[in-house]
Nucleic acid binder design. Structure first.
Lengths: 209, 209, 209, 209
DNA sequence: GATGAATGAGATTTCATTCAT
DNA sequence: CATGAATGAAATCTCATTCAT
């Protein structure tokens, strides 16, 4: 049922954007389709020319986000060879993406339970894929002797948690630039992994400006 | 409205417990009072002998949690003098509490927006108080030269994020004991703060068993 | 179930008074027994030591009022012989009672439909009895040639309506004394009946002071 | 929210009519929207395509009635010049309207307290406007020497009360025709105002047939 | 005689969804 | 494609009433 004409596409995008904002502000359950429609400037009934149903809207928002993040990371990592450099690049992309897509990331973290079991499983699988990618890098760094890993899974968790948390407070304004936030968080994470010269390595790759 | 009779007190507690569990599983908005009542074994109308309204129930759960956490930390910190020891103790209590009270912690993090503005402000104030306490310790460690602090606020955030995240996955079972989880997370956090001999200091205070 | 001890009687009366006031202000349906109980200073459950049920409360209030009005009129009329004097006395008592018992009179007029069919019939019968008494006097005045009656029933209605209406606005304060209100209304009614020298006769019996 | 489609308009009218009848029979508070919906032949939720909320329904009914009455009076009075003729015409329209719109008039009198303060004030203002119009005519008749006015406000009240009262018993059937009722009530009122030749003047303008 | 608690019924209102126009 | 209208289901909350203590 999704729009095919150009105008239809525009409306469909407007709906997704409006929904993302409302889901972020009030939550999926607390957001009514009436609010979404009003925000877009149409009537409730008209929504159904563009979406399957309310949950479908949430699924679109969530799914798109993970796809985009994975693609960004893969492209960025493809250009590095050194394992620590890879970790630094990953951390940078990770924090940047979570800050710049705070709303949808937040939705992705908080509204999993609003999905039907099948849809939930689908999203969880993609998130696990992402975590596995991080954990693999950490284990590689461990094997190479460049990091002092305590528990690969917990290290991964604490990095994932950083992103989630950044998304919960980053607003785009404030006295810390995003570059600086990335710089500091990367150092904290790298220190945590027991990488020697963590601060210097991060500064060399992504100076805080 | 809360019970005065002994039996009434029991019912009131049962309502709060049942609600906490359901809010955790399905979210505040997605939980109906009918579910709560059924779980407790009474009829919907009877709930109102014990609560003011649905939001009041959420407020009770959230407020109680923050009070308890603050009290635990204050008692624990009162017994240490060394600043690094204090940090280690704080991290230990922090992780343990978030793991052992995963449900209510999670509710506290995800359902803030379900509160009315006044109630929300009240809870946020208590959370800020907690964060300030952590940040003060970090700054003290910095001044004493025992830590290499990058940005006290971001360090605080990453510690807070750890707790939040632990609460989102810790189930009480699994192959890592809670003591071991605390041990590792504390090391990661202390390493991140640039504390020399982080691992050894943690192991000395709270051996992983 | 009605109270027998002295204290019980007091409470029972307090309940009736409080209920009358609330029924007057918000209507029977819109008044909750919780409000009544709170006004009296007891809890809802305790009401049932004094009343049968909610409707019973209304019936007590309504029934008592009509009994009292009838008794007042009968006593007053027993002391006059002249038919016009009787009408003047009746009008005086009629207006005075409706003004001084505005609340219960108003309830009696507006809450008939809140009674069960049987109770309603009982109250309506007493009201019809009262109307018949008025109409009988009017017809007697007509037969005696002292009044120029157009339609005894409609004259009766317009007198009844006067009372009802007075009860809807009389507050006890205001720039017209009750005596003056009675004086004027009596003249209007007597004029309407086509009684010669209406104004003078009223002034003679009940000077406006 | 009121209908835009032709069919929608029909439903909206049906809802108002059904509500008016039910409010008249059982009162506003005692009438459930379910009853209204059932009477119209739709489901409860569908009502909200046509009304804002329950009170809105009452407001529409009340406001419409007063507007209509005022308009009728203004048109009728515009065609007379003599002050007594004006009074007779006013009385005629007054009684006729109250008889023919007994239901809504009754609602207007008995359900004022079911309105919110703002809505109540709005309706009361319109009613006061109507009373002022009557009182002005009475004062004019007084000044012209054609009437023997005792207290313009009380005369006004007794006329208003007549209308209210007629609305409470007139059923359209019965042994008195509406024309005859109007004829008699007008005479009673005019007599009350001390107008000479009251009966003859009324008979000349509106013979009882 | 008062109270806390429970109950069943019911009220208003909101919502996602459908469909004829 | 948009819309007004209808629907069924559900949700929160209130209420009169009962009863053990």
């Amino acid at each position: 049922m999704t729009g095919i004409t150009a105008a239809g596409q525009l409306t469909a995008n407007a709906i997704r954007d409006e929904a993302a904002q409302l889901f972020f502000l009030h939550g999926f359950e607390a957001t009514s389709l009436r609010q979404v429609a009003t925000g877009v400037g149409i009537k409730v009934g008209s929504l159904y020319n563009h979406i399957e149903n309310k949950e479908d809207l949430l699924l679109q928002i969530m799914g798109g986000t993970m796809d985009e993040l994975m693609e960004i990371q893969e492209n960025a990592l493809a250009e590095c060879s050194d394992i620590i450099e890879k970790l630094i690049v990953l951390l940078s992309c990770h924090i940047r993406f979570h800050a710049e897509h705070a709303q949808v990331v937040f939705i992705g973290n908080s509204e999993l339970r609003s999905l039907s079991p099948e849809n939930r499983a689908q999203i969880i699988a993609r998130r696990r894929e992402y975590q596995t990618m991080i954990q693999n890098l950490i284990e590689e760094a461990d094997r190479s002797g460049r990091a002092l890993v305590l528990d690969a899974r917990l290290h991964t968790f604490s990095i994932v948690a950083m992103g989630t948390h950044v998304a919960s407070w980053y607003k785009g304004s404030g006295n810390l630039s995003l570059d600086r936030i990335i710089n500091i968080y990367s150092k904290i994470a790298l220190r945590g992994l027991g990488v020697a010269d963590a601060d210097a390595l991060v500064d060399k790759k992504f100076p805080a400006l």
